[in-house]
Simulated assay, not measured.
Amino acid sequence: MAPAVRALRGATTVDVDTPEHIEERVRALLDTLLERNAVDHDDLISILFTATDDVVSTFPATAARAKGLGDVPLICARELAITGGTPMCIRVMVHLTTDRARHELHHVYLEGARSLRDDLPA
Rank of each mutant, 00 (worst) to 15 (best):
H41C: 09
D17I: 04
D40N: 13
I47Y: 10
T52K: 03
D40P: 07
F49Q: 05
V39A: 08
L33E: 00
L48S: 14
T50I: 05
T18G: 07
S46E: 13
E35D: 15
L34H: 00
I45D: 13
R36Q: 14
L44T: 13
I22R: 00
L30H: 02
V16T: 13
V56T: 15
S46D: 14
D40Y: 06
H41G: 07
E35W: 03
L34G: 07
T32S: 12
S57L: 01
P19R: 00
D43W: 03
T18M: 00
R25E: 12
D40I: 05
R36N: 15
L34A: 01
I22Y: 00
V56E: 10
A28F: 04
D17R: 05
A38F: 02
R25S: 00
N37W: 02
D15S: 14
D42G: 13
H21Y: 07
S57C: 08
V39H: 01
D40V: 10
D42Q: 11
A51W: 01
R25I: 04
E35H: 07
R27K: 15
V56H: 13
V16R: 03
E23A: 11
R25A: 04
D17L: 02
V26G: 00
N37H: 10
E20A: 15
S46T: 14
T52G: 09
F49D: 06
D42F: 06
A28Y: 01
D42T: 14
E24P: 00
L48Y: 12
A28N: 08
R27I: 15
V26E: 03
D40F: 09
V16S: 09
D53S: 15
I45S: 13
E23R: 02
E35P: 01
D17S: 10
E35V: 12
V16W: 01
A51R: 15
T18A: 08
S57V: 08
T50P: 06
D42R: 11
H21N: 06
R36I: 03
S57Q: 07
D15Y: 08
T18L: 03
L29P: 01
A28I: 07
I22A: 00
E20G: 15
D42A: 15
D53E: 14
P19I: 01
P19H: 04
E24Y: 11
H21F: 03
I47N: 09
L29Y: 07
A51D: 05
T50F: 10
D17Y: 08
V55S: 08
T50N: 09
T32E: 11
A38G: 01
H21V: 03
D31A: 08
P19D: 00
I45V: 15
T50V: 07
H21E: 12
L33V: 10
R36L: 08
I45H: 08
H41A: 12
I45K: 09
L44S: 14
T32G: 04
D53I: 12
D17G: 11
P19V: 03
D53H: 14
E20W: 04
D31K: 12
E20H: 03
L44D: 09
P19E: 02
D54P: 12
D15I: 14
A38M: 01
T32A: 11
E23C: 00
T50K: 07
T18S: 14
S46V: 06
R25L: 02
I45G: 11
D54E: 05
E23W: 00
A28Q: 12
A51Q: 08
D54F: 05
